[in-house]
Design a protein around this nucleic acid. Structure first.
Lengths: 223, 223
DNA sequence: CGGAGTTTGTCACCAGAGTTACAATTGAGC
DNA sequence: GCTCAATTGTAACTCTGGTGACAAACTCCG
């Protein structure tokens, strides 16, 4: 299957495009462009003028966000099918999120001006953008709520459950990155992961985590 | 000034409606409705079918969000001019945020079906909704990033600075609510607040905080 | 003006996460 | 196959923040 076909399939399946015909998918493919990036490459610099929608077609990217004091905070990892919308045009201010490839990746990028061009023919594209941004808002709020409401162990369980549910049971990240995402030390995360492994909830590998029982993780998160 | 005029002014000034003419403001006022709520009232229940845009015209509301385990997490307080968009239609799932009035409040509510009706005449309304949701996404991401990256003292300083900058220097909430928002205990928050007061950054009152030096707070947050 | 309820300030104790350093294991490149 | 870098597991110690209980100060309402 060609990359273009793969991107079309991912777009067609995506929640935020449900209810629209195939014309929008076609428009995205026509006005967007496919980019190949090596591991470690920045898909987009923070503050970059170039904003719009980015769809991960293959590979995986880490999502970073700026915090006070010039800190860059890792807050998530996205695999194929995940889209990020950043409509700078209306929000004002610089780009929110920086993407860094953790493995060689293929992205579909639809810049702002392409969205504007699409909108002249199909104004309902903004409805899709609103839905996409709303999905991201939901995810960000969940992270924020968990960060302030749950103790570390429950928070880790909740995050593992979400990642396994949205990106498949095999999580390809090391414990250092996971600890950064949670705002914990590697040692603390490692300790809880070992506990989860002893309980049979997951299997630890070198640079990866195989989630085996999302239900139990969810119960821990809710306890 | 009538409530309608007050709402019109707030909408006209709002960032997410910049670039659009007065027609959208007019449409919101025509298709939305003004509601009066006493202190303690729920503006909208979580999971409520009734979604759309809510604008705080007068008073103040607390924003709550669901976390695993049936926990309700307070994550912010909104005064006049703050709008919340929740386009359930496309996001799927229940309403994200619950609003609770902390004082008698006046809200402008524009339900989903009203947005749909407006869109038949003015499809660009979705562009405004996308911009609004994007603003909320920015705020939620900032909260999440601060929660995982900053130690408690810096986090508190960052949050106070944001609240003072967006809602005026006089914050009307008690230390218990502030502690809940930060995911800290009241005692810890109280200790840092006293320290800030001794340094002259703010003045503590009964149920309120008067921020005096946002620059110094920002420097603490970045340290 | 006075009393009830709320909010704030203070104390001592303790669980739990961070830190540092190091050893053991795995994977990738040559 | 071997070397080196990255990743993971383990230890002792420190220290910040949570908990519970309580007193003082402030509002609000009658």
């Amino acid at each position: 299957m060609s990359l273009r076909e793969r991107a079309a399939e991912l777009l067609t399946r995506s929640v935020w495009l449900q209810g629209h015909g195939p014309e929008l998918v076609e428009a995205f493919l026509t006005h967007g462009r496919i980019v190949h990036l090596p591991a470690g490459a920045w898909a987009q610099s923070e503050g970059d003028e170039q904003t719009g929608i980015t769809l991960v077609v293959e590979g995986a990217v880490q999502m970073m966000c700026a915090a006070p004091g010039g800190r860059e905070v890792l807050f998530g990892q996205a695999g194929p099918g995940v889209a990020l919308g950043q409509t700078l045009r209306f929000g004002g201010g610089p780009r929110l999120v920086t993407l860094i490839c953790v493995e060689p990746s293929v992205l579909l990028v639809i810049p702002d001006h392409a969205l504007t061009r699409i909108a002249t023919q199909r104004p309902e594209v903004w409805q899709a953008v609103a839905a996409l941004v709303y999905l991201q808002l939901r995810g960000a709020l969940m992270i924020a709520a968990e960060a302030v409401a749950l103790p570390p162990r429950q928070r880790l369980a909740a995050r593992l459950e979400v990642m396994a549910r949205t990106g498949g049971p095999t999580l390809r990240l090391n414990q250092q990155a996971l600890a950064e995402m949670m705002g914990l030390s590697r040692k603390t995360v490692s300790g809880y992961l070992l506990g989860f492994q002893r309980a049979g909830l997951l299997t630890l590998g070198y640079g990866q985590i195989e989630v085996r029982d999302t239900g139990a993780l969810r119960r821990i998160a809710e306890s």
